[in-house]
């Protein structure tokens, strides 16, 4: 299963980005192959519609779960209809490698 995590940078030491639509990078982590991939978010400076555009980006990678600090009003109904699970973690200090470690439970 693939999981998307919003990240402030492109290393495993980066922190969890508290925003979904305008995060700096998405980390797509595959729990089966343990592979991960950093995708820069093209919508970071978008005036509006950053959330739905970001959903399209991660949905095209067949992600089934997204971990972020907050999801906007426009994003929630789209993710609901796509049956993508939202995980809200309000901890800006959390590093990407910690989260990947937690996912290995």
């Amino acid at each position: 299963m693939k999981v998307a995590i919003t990240s402030t940078g492109n290393t495993l030491e980066s922190n969890l980005d508290q925003r979904f639509g305008r995060c700096a990078y998405f980390v797509v982590y595959d729990t089966d192959t343990k592979a991960f991939e950093f995708i820069p978010n093209p919508n970071i400076d978008a005036e509006q519609g950053a959330g739905p555009a970001s959903v399209n980006l991660v949905a095209s990678r067949d992600v089934q779960k997204i971990i972020s600090g907050e999801f906007g009003m426009k994003v929630k109904p789209i993710l609901d209809s796509l049956k993508i699970q939202m995980v809200v973690l309000k901890d800006p200090e959390k590093q990407i490698k910690d989260i990947i470690e937690m996912l290995k439970h």
Binding site: Q85, V88, L89
Partner: peptide, 16 residues
């Protein structure tokens, strides 16, 4: 959708 709270890691999540 239904939302849940984890008492261990403190995250909120929904059940799609």
């Amino acid at each position: 959708s239904d939302w849940y709270y984890c008492n261990d890691c403190g995250c909120h999540f929904n059940n799609p």
